[in-house]
Design a protein around this nucleic acid. Sequence first.
DNA 1: TAGATTGTTAATCGATTAACAATC
DNA 2: TAGATTGTTAATCGATTAACAATC
Lengths: 217, 217
Amino acid sequence: MQKNKNISTPVIKRLPRYYRFLGDLRENGATRISSRELSERMGLTASQIRQDLNCFGGFGQQGYGYSVDGLYKEIGAILGLDNCYNTILIGAGNLGKAVAVHMSFETRGFSLTGIFDNDPEKIGQSIRGIAVSDIAGLEAFCHDNRTDAAILCVPKSAAPQIADRLYALGIRNYWNFSHYDLSMRFSDIVVENVHLNDSLMILCYKISAAGEMQEQV
Amino acid sequence: MQKNKNISTPVIKRLPRYYRFLGDLRENGATRISSRELSERMGLTASQIRQDLNCFGGFGQQGYGYSVDGLYKEIGAILGLDNCYNTILIGAGNLGKAVAVHMSFETRGFSLTGIFDNDPEKIGQSIRGIAVSDIAGLEAFCHDNRTDAAILCVPKSAAPQIADRLYALGIRNYWNFSHYDLSMRFSDIVVENVHLNDSLMILCYKISAAGEMQEQV
DNA sequence: TAGATTGTTAATCGATTAACAATC
DNA sequence: TAGATTGTTAATCGATTAACAATC
């Protein structure tokens, strides 16, 4: 189903949003939708939606539009949500705990298989039914359990050394919450960053900029 | 300092990363840096860095480069980090708690002034020295305390009604963690989204796509 | 069949990169 | 002064939008 053109990042970033809107439509019992109607709901152009979808295949039907359920499933398949990548979480602080408890890994192509920390207070605690392990046991765990990806919820200072250990274990896929640029350290890895500090600063910029606009009016 | 051209979003999104790298350089005692050297560290082109910075002003000096400290402060000012936007957090679940405890609001232009939830278990709890208030008291609180922004850490189902209440109170700036598109509901608001589900799905896509690439080799 | 809507090509717009004169 | 590096203009590249023939 996935053609092997290189899909551009703007397109990829829009896929989860399509998936969300189609999921909502589906829940509300909609069976068909045209690119024009979807574009109005999502605040995009119909043209862009059709262009995006046609990167992966012709899912629509002339004169009819798209099947909501069909398209929902197609996009799920494109995203690879039917996978089950074994994933460990490093860092069981507030953020790590929230991510572990909050996320629905199973419906997003992942399975949380281990949680690690170096704080004796946290080791042994149970989060989402998983006991927090001593980070010292990381290597042993990964040798015994296939591990496809790691979630980094450690402080910036700890990130480089932890990343080195994970990389040495052959882990190449990262969901990175630490304020550290993994991609600058390793070139052959897959990283998705969630930089909350950066996001908050962008909000600050937007608010400030919007304020200046108003002053001018 | 801020010229009033409309700055494009790609540029804005790079600003926090510049800020982070310059902060690191500063801590390591660097005093000057050229666009070329910074470009190598950050994995960008020198041209792009100079273009980006020149949206806001000529901060460099021919033949010399940029003052690390000077540029760091300029970018901080551009981002508006010297502001102190009063901000309330809605939703004191795992994610809300993590955000409240984890973020350094003060150095990012914000001040956390209130936390609200509707769960009796959570009301009264103290997070970051702030007592969680009953969401029923939201209106009273906002009338007594100037509130510039809100952080939404509520489930998708609760998002629309909470957003309506906040909007009615005149709040126009949102840091939105809920899986709901505020910008489709209100047109005159400032929103910065952190959609963790979307981010995880993008990681899933990237891993799957990288896997397919390898198969072809 | 006529109307609707897709898939796809062409046109436009915007962002990135390259080049170089200005100047520290 | 000579060398280095900026600020800025021009060229290229990529993404979005518009248009329309194909077709359900």
